[in-house]
Amino acid sequence: MHIVICIKQVPDPEIAPSVFRVDEVAKKVISLAGTAPVINPFDEQAVEAALRIRDAEQDPANVTITAVTMGEATSEKIVRKAMALGVDQGVTLVDAAFADSDAYATARALAAAITKLGDIDLVLTGRQAADSDAGVVALGIAELLRLPAITLAKKIEVADGAVQVERAVSEGEETMAAPLPAVITIAHELGAVRKPSLRETMRAGRKPVRRWGPDDLGMDAESVGRAGSRRVVERLYQPTRDVDCEWVSGDEPAAIAKALVGRLVEQKLL
């Protein structure tokens, strides 16, 4: 079985909102000194999902896991990190021509990379990237490769050429099934991810990472990156919150509660 995981490097989503800044002219997020980009947390769970599928196999040696990323040169780091968790090999789509790709161009490049990898059984990604928050790329890959897709997985079982997925839907329970190969997106509800083991970390440095550019994918410069993108970012800005906080205080909780209820009633909020 060959599992491909598509992973993305994003600015650390857990930084305090008070230090988050955008450059409105460049329409880019300003990277903060002292904070390193991270693997998109949902993609980290896709790595975990792949490892769990392998753990559940009778013969784990039959499972190959490949991590693919498109991004800046530094994104090889997240591939190495995935390898330290147990991923076998990596592909980085690193080339100036890929810069400023939108979801459309990204899905096309990743789909081309997956096609080049050859026989695959599963494509796993996080439910969405923590920077673009769009949730488009995985479904685009499914369409381009004409594969079935199941989103928001919290539990995956592979058996007899098919995949069965428990989905993280907020109301109730839902299980879906699809024949392999298939694309699955992973939800936060999959649960905690493992830590790198010493053994895998030692091995990670020796695992192969291939670097492919547009030529390797049989794509011309016009169909990748900004040139191959379809959505134009007209503006990027930080929303302002025009609220003045009115502090409600008192000697003890009961007094504060009374004061608050009084104010809420005055403001017709209660």
């Binding site: 909102p17 906080c245 409600v248 205080s249 909780p253 504060i256 009374k258 608050l260 209820v261």
Partner: peptide, 29 residues
């Protein structure tokens, strides 16, 4: 706390104690 930047009304207190008091107060009104 960052939440106060979005808040119309801010209360610096232990939320459990305050919640109990608020429930009492709402029951009164």
């Amino acid at each position: 706390a960052e939440i106060f930047k979005s808040a119309r009304f801010g209360i610096v207190a232990d939320c459990n104690e305050f919640l109990a008091a608020l429930i009492e107060e709402i029951r009164k009104v």
